[in-house]
């Protein structure tokens, strides 16, 4: 199967392993950050309700509002960061690895 040969060539490409390692590490790190922040948020609420009920400066709004809305924005921003990095940094390298692997396949 041609796919299998392409696959072997991709695997032996020197760029492949570092790319996957970087991408995987980034994905798990970012997951840990998002999960950690969310868990910290609900644990803070579970342990000390008054903390997030403290008003911000002279406003009626409490610290809970910017923290809460901030988490919503964080969820979006973290995905945007991941998508941007994938589009700009990883996709071109992967495309190059793949096209080289396919080109060798065609040349054979």
């Amino acid at each position: 199967m041609a796919d299998q040969e392409v696959l072997e060539r991709v695997a032996s490409d020197p760029r492949y392993v570092p790319l996957v390692r970087e991408r995987t590490r980034f994905a798990w790190t970012l997951s840990a950050v998002v999960v950690g922040l969310f868990m910290a948020f609900i644990l803070v609420i579970a342990l000390d309700k008054a903390l997030l009920a403290t008003p911000v400066g002279g406003l009626v709004a409490t610290w809970g509002i910017p923290v809460g809305l901030g988490l919503i924005l964080l969820a979006i921003a973290s995905i945007a960061l991941f998508t941007r990095r994938a589009n700009r940094r990883w996709d071109p390298v992967m495309a190059a690895i793949l096209s080289d692997a396919v080109a060798k396949d065609a040349a054979k």
């Binding site: 970012l30 997951s31 998002v34 999960v35 969820a75 995905i79």
Partner: peptide, 14 residues
């Protein structure tokens, strides 16, 4: 709301 949204980054990254 925040709870509902936080599963999405996991879906995205992993």
């Amino acid at each position: 709301s925040i709870g509902f949204l936080m599963g999405w980054p996991i879906i995205s990254f992993l």
